[in-house]
């Protein structure tokens, strides 16, 4: 990444046309417009026309400097490339610019797929459509979790990816905290000592929730935002989908989601794992919230959505401690 002034839109389009076209000559770029890329990325949509006449709707996603979630654009591109043609509902990966030559920041170009991603639109859908999309989400999640990542060339450098995932969020928490947070510190220790063995080591999306998938009518068309994808316990994705802030529980109870997932994945996620990752999700959300608050406190972002994010932490801890202390957890833990 360079430290030069950020290029303007015309410069970005010129650089993009050259990189996308490669040896065949520049690709024609049309319909250029800025799109919503979330809190962590800038996004531009456009149509690309290659020298051989092929035309595709595309989206360019470029990292912003002040972001609250660590991510690796090259790793995301590698995951999406491995998924291309696999049947997992994901956009085609077209170009990686890890050095930031196009926009000044690491970027990727993806196929732009049909559908809308609005979390509010999904969560306020009528019951029939909401249930149909949720059932399709269960199937799409299962398709991802049964994906043969090893044969597709993805490798794990972690001896224990489950421990690594807990450790990475604990590290993020320790790096960004503005106060000691002894209860959260304890919670990470609890997670380490209670993590279940995964029924299968899967490619996990890592941020699967309303807002990060596209849907059209009553069908899910694509899973989006693969920045946090990693190898891990598939229960992690399901617990995150059912985090209460955005849960589709009103459309499809968790047990029914698990049954659909098992049918399409070919393996069953133990309920104990789903319950464990429900607690993990609260620690993860607390860590993300603390990182967001740190970003604002240190002047790395002016986004006011982050200014008071640390106020989310007590709720995360209240939920996690409540589940750990409940007889419900003890019973199900022992029965597992």
């Amino acid at each position: 990444m360079n430290s030069l002034p950020a290029p303007d839109d015309a410069q970005i389009q010129r650089a993009l046309a050259l990189r996308l076209g490669g040896a065949d000559g520049p690709t024609a770029i049309s319909g250029w417009q800025q799109a919503f890329g979330g809190n962590a990325r800038r996004a531009y949509s456009f149509e690309a026309t290659w020298a051989d006449g092929r035309i595709a709707p595309c989206i360019l996603l470029s990292q912003v400097t002040g972001k609250h979630v660590e991510s690796d654009t090259a790793a995301e591109f590698a995951v999406l490339s491995a998924l291309n043609g696999s049947g997992v509902r994901s956009p085609e990966a077209l170009l990686l610019d890890a050095e930031g030559e196009i926009t000044g920041s690491p970027s990727i170009v993806l196929e732009r797929m049909a559908g809308q991603a609005g979390a509010v639109d999904f969560l306020s859908a009528d019951t029939r459509i909401g249930r149909a999309i949720s059932e399709d989400l269960a199937q799409a999640t299962a398709e991802l979790h049964r994906f043969d990542w090893h044969s597709a060339g993805l490798v794990s450098n972690d001896i224990n990816p489950i421990d690594s995932q807990i450790a990475s969020w604990q590290d993020s928490f320790r790096k960004h905290r503005l106060e000691p947070h002894p209860v959260l510190e304890w919670l990470f220790g609890w997670l380490r000592s209670h993590a279940p063995e995964p029924v299968r080591l899967s490619l996990v999306h890592g941020d699967l929730r309303p807002g990060n998938f596209l849907f059209e009518d009553d069908r899910l068309t694509a899973l989006l935002d693969w920045e946090m994808a990693h190898l891990g316990d598939p229960a992690e994705d399901i617990a995150w989908i059912y985090r209460r802030l955005w849960s589709p529980e009103k459309f499809l109870p968790l047990d029914e989601f698990l049954a659909i997932h098992a049918h399409h994945a070919g393996f069953t996620i133990p309920r104990r794992s789903a319950l464990f990752y429900r607690i993990f999700s609260e620690a993860k959300f607390a860590a993300i919230s603390i990182a967001a608050a740190h970003l604002f406190a240190t002047g790395k972002t002016a986004n006011l959505r982050h200014v008071d994010r640390a106020a989310k932490v007590p709720e995360c801890l209240r939920l996690a401690l409540g589940w750990i202390a409940s007889e419900d957890w003890e019973t199900r833990d022992a029965a597992a």
């Binding site: 979390a119 969560l123 807002g211 802030l245 955005w246 009103k250 106020a311 007590p314 709720e315 209240r318």
Partner: peptide, 12 residues
């Protein structure tokens, strides 16, 4: 101000 009431299905 988190009183513990159900907060499902409100956007982050």
């Amino acid at each position: 101000g988190d009183s513990g009431e159900d907060k499902r299905n409100t956007r982050e």
